[in-house]
């Protein structure tokens, strides 16, 4: 009997302006492989199924345990993390493609810096007075911690943005991840001092009113952030702020 193999089709593009081509590979099967180990195997022997020598595939990865957010890509059409995608659970041929809503750098690597820019825009931080010793932080109930902790688990993978019908270059909509961070920092006893600024940053073009509440983001998030709750809470905060703004201006 022929050796068991894994069949893979990878959408490759040499640079941002290049044309995309699909390359096919077939590599020896081992139990318990994830998509990253498939890509590593190809790097050690970059030869297509037709015997053509090619180059190792460019992709991002670092932690390999779904905590750094590097390795998002489309796997069999679905945006997800390559390191936690187990081959044994996937249909073959595996189809690997870059995320479609972000500019391709090369092969499976895309440019997701827009999310980090958005985090700046909404001032996603606690504005402490300084790093010198100012004593203990505010007391926080275990209940409050249990509410904020999941929001703080966002790995900036951008899967939620990839699947969002509102997120594209044209709308400038910030996407679910940024909205969740607004909730996280608005809820923090010290962080909330910037609440107004954050909400204003979400008003207008690309702000939260663009969200159609389709909740694709909720299903796509690998860290299971409570995005629906965050979007509706922050949506309410923005509305309240808008009303306040009318009476104060």
């Amino acid at each position: 009997m022929a050796e068991r193999t894994i069949k893979v089709e990878i959408k490759r593009q040499h640079d941002p302006d290049g044309t995309a081509v699909v390359e096919r590979f077939e590599i020896p099967y081992r139990p318990n492989m994830n998509v990253i180990s498939v890509l590593m195997e190809i790097a050690a022997r970059p030869v297509t199924v037709d015997g053509k020598e090619t180059t190792p595939v460019t992709y991002e990865s670092n932690c390999l345990e779904e905590i750094c957010g590097s390795c998002s890509m489309r796997i069999n059409g679905r945006a997800r993390m390559a390191c936690s995608a187990l081959v044994d659970n996937l249909e073959q041929p595996l189809r690997l493609e870059p995320l479609s809503k972000f500019p391709v750098v090369r092969d499976l690597q895309v440019d997701r810096s827009v999310l980090f820019e958005n985090l700046k825009r909404v001032q996603a931080w606690v504005p402490i007075d300084g790093s010198y010793d100012l004593g203990a932080g505010p007391r926080i109930t275990p209940q409050a911690q249990e509410e904020s902790y999941p929001l703080s688990n966002c790995i900036s993978c951008c899967c939620c943005m990839e699947v969002c019908p509102q997120f594209n270059v044209a709308t400038g909509f910030v996407g679910a991840a940024t909205i969740a961070q607004v909730k996280l920092f608005n809820d923090h006893p010290t962080g909330k001092v910037l609440k107004e600024e954050r909400l204003h940053a979400l008003m207008g073009d690309g702000g939260i009113q663009d969200c159609s509440y389709a909740q694709n983001c909720v299903k796509a998030c690998p860290k299971e952030l409570p995005l629906a709750q965050a979007i509706s809470d922050v949506g309410r905060q923005v509305m309240v702020q808008a009303v306040k703004d009318i009476f104060t201006t």
Binding site: W125, V126, I128, S131, D133, L134, G135, A136, G137, P138, R139, I140, T141, P142, A144, Q145, S148, Y149, S152, F185, H188, T190, G191
Partner: peptide, 21 residues
């Protein structure tokens, strides 16, 4: 100890005791 306090002030969601410590 002061480093932990600082991290706490920066918003690290450390686990808490019932008293909020």
């Amino acid at each position: 100890p002061a480093i932990i306090d600082l991290l706490d002030r920066m918003g690290v969601p450390f686990n808490r005791t019932p008293e909020g410590l």
